[in-house]
Design a binder for these strands. Structure first.
Length: 218
DNA sequence: AAAACGGGGGC
DNA sequence: GCCCCAGTTTT
């Protein structure tokens, strides 16, 4: 796929994903340029729907908005604030831990390198890359289940794991598309090209999808 | 590579 | 009741 075809694909994804008015894009834009907020909200978003995560993040930040403040919150306080995101045992425990790490090892700042971000407890490649991309404006591809699934469905990559997808996309996509691409694909994956009962009839990319007539896209 | 983790909400 | 979800960690 040459760069002209890729540019066309990204544009078509933009149209299919519904453009900037889509809630996820709006929410992400609001969190932009605040790496700490992006980090915390992404940890909260693990296996949880994004509308729920957005509200939970706001409530939590009303309690404390800095690593210093947040590391002092009790598990119970956090649990109440972030209801109903689920995964409380992990999340309510990890947040003060991450904040303590930020204060003690990184001078209360969210790191801006992949290696440092991955050293935080509960932060994996997807979270780390999202912080780099949205928080620090670096070109990064963060691969979640949507990006993994749809990149394969569109034939951009042929991979088994999200990590393989990340590296394959780095080879396939020019850098300038990385940040736009992953945000778009998540929107597209949630509203149109869903894992279960995808809206193929209203999808504008049917000609690129080998499974257009198949009922399930899993 | 696969399983464990883990809980509210939608149907 | 059953299944799904912007993942990460452990076996």
């Amino acid at each position: 796929m040459d760069s002209k075809e890729i540019d066309l694909l990204v544009r078509r994804l933009e149209v299919s994903a519904g453009g900037a008015d889509f809630p996820i894009v709006t929410q992400l834009a609001e969190r932009q340029h605040d790496p700490f907020k992006i980090l915390i909200s992404t940890v909260l978003s693990l296996r949880t729907k994004d509308e729920v995560t957005g509200k939970a993040t706001e409530k939590l930040f009303r309690l404390a908005s800095t690593p210093e403040g947040m590391m002092k919150l009790s598990e119970e306080e956090i649990r109440q604030a972030i209801y109903p995101v689920g995964f409380y045992r992990n999340k309510a425990r990890q947040i003060p831990e991450i904040c303590r790490d930020l204060v003690e090892r990184f001078f209360s700042r969210v790191p801006d390198t992949l290696e440092d971000l991955l050293s935080l407890k509960g932060v994996g490649r997807k979270t780390a890359n999202l912080v780099l991309s949205l928080g620090y404006g670096q070109e990064a591809i963060c691969v979640d289940t949507h990006v993994h699934r749809i990149s394969n469905r569109l034939g951009l990559v042929k991979t088994k794991t999200p990590e393989q997808t990340e590296f394959a996309l780095q080879d396939t996509l020019p850098r300038c598309y990385w940040s736009r691409y992953n945000t778009l694909l998540v929107s597209f994956g949630q509203r149109v090209c869903r894992p279960v009962s995808p809206l193929c009839s209203s999808c504008l990319l049917g000609d690129l999808c080998p499974r257009i007539s198949v009922t399930s896209h899993r």
